[in-house]
Simulated scan of single mutants.
Amino acid sequence: MSDIAMTPPISMPLTAVDRCDRCGAAAKVRAILPAGGELLFCRHHYNSHEARLAELSAIVEDSAAELV
């Protein structure tokens, strides 16, 4: 058994420059995939893919209220 603790990835807050990977609209949600990588979504496309992201155990950061 390993004594190494797993920590979640550190990510920066979304900014007005971040865009949805599906349509290019302002990104409101970051989904960090367990296998590595991340996806950025507008609210509409996040809602469309929410169930699949949950199946994949993605870490979801909703930054809609924190955009800088």
Rank of each mutant, 00 (worst) to 15 (best):
R43V: 11
L56R: 14
P34G: 10
P8M: 09
D62T: 01
L56A: 10
P9A: 03
V17R: 03
L14Y: 02
C20M: 09
A35I: 10
A65Q: 13
P13E: 08
V17Q: 11
A26N: 07
V17A: 06
H45S: 14
I59Q: 04
A35S: 11
I4N: 12
R52I: 10
R52T: 15
L67S: 05
P34S: 09
R19N: 07
R19L: 03
K28I: 02
Y46I: 12
A25F: 01
A65S: 15
K28L: 07
M1P: 09
G24T: 11
A35D: 06
V17K: 07
P13F: 08
F41K: 00
L39S: 13
V29M: 07
A65T: 13
R52D: 14
A31H: 07
E38D: 14
I10S: 03
H45F: 10
S11V: 15
A58F: 05
L67Y: 06
K28W: 04
D3G: 15
D3E: 15
A54R: 04
G24P: 13
A27I: 08
M1L: 11
L67P: 04
T7M: 12
A35Y: 06
I10A: 03
G36M: 03
D18G: 01
S57I: 06
S11R: 14
L14F: 01
I10K: 04
D3I: 05
H45R: 07
E50C: 12
I4W: 09
D18W: 00
I59K: 02
P9R: 13
P34R: 14
R19D: 01
L53K: 07
S2V: 02
A26V: 14
M12H: 11
I59D: 01
I59E: 05
C23Q: 11
P34F: 08
A26S: 11
R43C: 06
R43D: 07
Y46M: 12
C42W: 01
C23K: 11
C42E: 00
L40K: 03
R43N: 12
M6H: 13
R22M: 00
C23I: 07
A5W: 03
L40H: 02
P34V: 13
E61I: 14
A64W: 05
I10D: 02
S57A: 15
P9W: 07
S2E: 14
A54E: 04
D21C: 10
Y46C: 12
S57Y: 02
E55A: 13
I4P: 04
P34I: 12
R52L: 14
R43A: 15
L14P: 03
V68W: 01
M1R: 05
R43I: 06
A25D: 07
P13R: 06
L53N: 07
